[in-house]
Amino acid sequence: MSLFPPLLPRHALVLFSGGQDSTTCLAHALSRYERVETIAFDYGQRHRVELDARLNVLQALRQQFPAWGERLGEDHLLDVNVLGHISETSLTRDTAFAMEASGLPNTFVPGRNLLFLTLAAALAYRRGMDVLVTGVCETDFSGYPDCRDDTMKAMQIALSLGMDKRLLIDTPLMWIDKAQTWQLAHELGDASGVADGGKALVDLIVEHSHTCYLGDREHRHAWGYGCGSCPACELRARGYARYSAAA
């Protein structure tokens, strides 16, 4: 018996960077919603390789999970380089990762998720979609204020009012850590109808998704490709180790 309910007759747009979190969110959306599309943003990020990795994730999902592939619709890539122009952060400049006096890491790109959600909502409006799925998390994260639950609730209200259309912002990872995110991917894969789908989806995420802030696709670890030392790699590696130990 499936762990997940029947598909909801709603249309979802997944904010899909091609990382571990957004790939898990995409699997969540494909397990839950009738129609699913994806959107990504080129904002001049140092780890721009993620924009290539995400295409590999989409191709692998279509091939390995054909039932999902039938409902996986159009992919959209928006150029928002203006965000990189106005951001002095280690994700958009060649500077070392560090903590700021504010207590936030200098990987924080101010307004990034607010802009992404606004643009996603505008596209969703045009394409008749009513759910935005995003991988923000307040449990195992870097403290970014635009990843917090209160921000998402406020954005859902503001976008629904501004679009004069009831929108849902679905945040399946909000209250789970990275180990639980790996476990969720396993459960979603198992419920997909594909033989040994849990292992297949986790292996897909390990091999094809990209998280490393430095854009390293040369060094292969048990948890995937990356430098192994940036904040994103450290979070992913710790989560995978805890997930593997509990498996």
Rank of each mutant, 00 (worst) to 15 (best):
residue 123 L to N: 05
residue 85 H to Y: 13
residue 119 L to T: 11
residue 72 L to C: 04
residue 63 Q to G: 00
residue 108 F to Y: 15
residue 109 V to P: 05
residue 68 W to T: 01
residue 114 L to I: 10
residue 101 A to D: 14
residue 88 E to P: 00
residue 125 Y to S: 10
residue 68 W to G: 06
residue 89 T to L: 04
residue 105 P to N: 07
residue 122 A to W: 04
residue 84 G to C: 05
residue 82 V to F: 15
residue 101 A to V: 09
residue 116 F to K: 03
residue 69 G to V: 07
residue 117 L to D: 06
residue 69 G to T: 07
residue 117 L to R: 06
residue 64 Q to M: 12
residue 86 I to S: 13
residue 120 A to D: 09
residue 121 A to L: 03
residue 84 G to P: 11
residue 123 L to H: 12
residue 97 F to V: 14
residue 119 L to C: 13
residue 72 L to W: 06
residue 110 P to D: 09
residue 72 L to Q: 09
residue 120 A to Y: 06
residue 106 N to Q: 10
residue 89 T to D: 02
residue 74 E to P: 02
residue 108 F to G: 02
residue 107 T to I: 05
residue 68 W to R: 09
residue 87 S to C: 08
residue 97 F to N: 03
residue 116 F to H: 11
residue 105 P to S: 10
residue 89 T to C: 09
residue 99 M to Q: 13
residue 96 A to I: 05
residue 87 S to Y: 03
residue 102 S to H: 07
residue 65 F to H: 07
residue 99 M to K: 02
residue 90 S to T: 06
residue 99 M to H: 06
residue 107 T to M: 05
residue 122 A to I: 13
residue 106 N to P: 10
residue 83 L to P: 07
residue 96 A to L: 11
residue 90 S to H: 04
residue 104 L to M: 08
residue 69 G to D: 07
residue 112 R to C: 12
residue 87 S to R: 05
residue 81 N to G: 15
residue 67 A to C: 01
residue 113 N to V: 03
residue 70 E to Y: 02
residue 77 L to N: 02
residue 112 R to Y: 10
residue 103 G to E: 04
residue 77 L to K: 04
